[in-house]
Design a protein around this nucleic acid. Sequence first.
RNA 1: GGGUGAUUAGCUCAGUCGGUAGAGCAGCUGACUCUUAAUCAGCCGGUCGCAGGUUCGAAUCCUGCAUCACCCA
Length: 509
Amino acid sequence: MRVLAREQASKGDDSSKGEPGRFERQRQEKLSAIRQMGIDPYGGRYEGAESAADIRSGYKEDDESQRAKCAGRITLLRDIGKLIFMTIRDWSGTIQVGLSKKLMGERWPLAKLLELGDIIGAAGKLGKTKTGEITIWADEVTMLSKSLLHPPEKFHGLSDIDLRYRQRYVDLWSNPEVMELFKKRSAILSTIREYLKGLGFIEVETPMMQSIAGGAAAKPFITHHNSLGMDLFLRIAPELFLKRLLVGGMEKVFEINRNFRNEGLSRQHNPEFTMLELYQAYADYNVMMDLTEEVTCLLVEKYCEDTKVRFGDTSIDFARPWRRSSYAELLAKYSGCDIDDIDSLRKKAAELGIEQAQMDDTVVVHEVFEATVEKNLSNPTFVIDYPAALCPLTKTKRDNEAYAERFELYVAGMELANAYTELNDPAVQEENFRLQLRGQAESMATMDSDFVTALKYGMPPAGGLGIGIDRLVMVLTGATSIRDVVLFPLLKPTTDWDPKRDKSRLGTP
RNA sequence: GGGUGAUUAGCUCAGUCGGUAGAGCAGCUGACUCUUAAUCAGCCGGUCGCAGGUUCGAAUCCUGCAUCACCCA
């Protein structure tokens, strides 16, 4: 990867690290010149500016007295001598500002000092140029923030993928489609919240720091509380707390928040990721399936041009109804193995290079499922009725205790959602916890006996659903890497990183 | 964890057989009152990711390390 711009700027003509580079010094000189003109280069409250998009759409051809006021960053600059055109970008788009020596008068020297990256406000008559571009002919220009670092190339923007993630603040304004994507992500979340509230759900917040990391099978991050002298886990799932709320009498709850899993990074995995979890009393996994399909299709309708959405070099067809197939059917179709034929499944696992000697039969089955089925599920597919052994928090099917009332939704080969008919029998739950704990390290796995206590008071039968929001945004926007839909994805530090430091910073006395 | 590739100017990228570093953009100087990635002329700008090695000579070949990307587990 490349060194950060700031560090790179300090190379070359500077011997010591941290000193400003050539370009930064030039910009510092302009900043000083602005100060000498009695102007604060960092501005202040600036009122009355309209968005660039509103200015454009509000332009009236026949109104010669129309004025406009904008604020934003200079992203293009064309200096024609006594006339300067600049393209100002705000988060709605761009608007052209024309600065002329005649209109600027004694402020003209300021206009000449402005450069790419500076943030300014401008006001003046709104008109069109000879070539038809809507333009604010500025008679007032306000310096709002001097940019001291060199902007990326004006045409290609910032394209180094590593730099884009590390300096998202530059990526956002130099690559407008990135801004659009994150605005869309926010809109998607708003739509989900509105939809759920419309169904009578309430949004809640449950602990991110938990003394027992439950609700999923994943390695947790461990942190430490100094005054209590105890380790805590960052949550891997909110499930067990949300279900306590069902016990408490909250009938429809949801939470949209971060989960943390101490596992590998990939195009589909960031260690912290945003999860929607919801629970509905008196429902089951069929209700959850309908809800998942409804809300996703609503989002596709709202945020995609068509039910067919491009994703990498494939396309996803969200047209309803979505396929619903049982786990066993799909396993048979794609691995060629019968789910009850463990010998052939172990043989298949061996062919696939899965280290399965130490694994329970059910784990082997699931490994084969993951290796053979998942990548084939491109269009939305509900995989229903999982082997009960994989589902310690799920009610089993009434007619067959070997299977649980659980589905996972797969799209583009990714697990997008996971839902159960929630197990509400405390005795069965306690037994499942015991089975789950067997053979695990003591520190990692503790029985959540309070959750069992809660169930003993009585939890209504319920459907529960989790949707991976980052992955949902990926399929809705065609982003093939989770890092493209997370503003600040986790990256390794590039410099001055000492692994020893981390221990000492934990704060253990 | 393994494999492959990438890392060159502020940014976007070239760099042939190993012969001593290039372009565009931006920056600086100058010209220009209707430009649209403005244009024109001139100029500046590099520890070629880092550390070693081979060689008369390394951006180029070799080893190690770092970060990123992709593939595999």
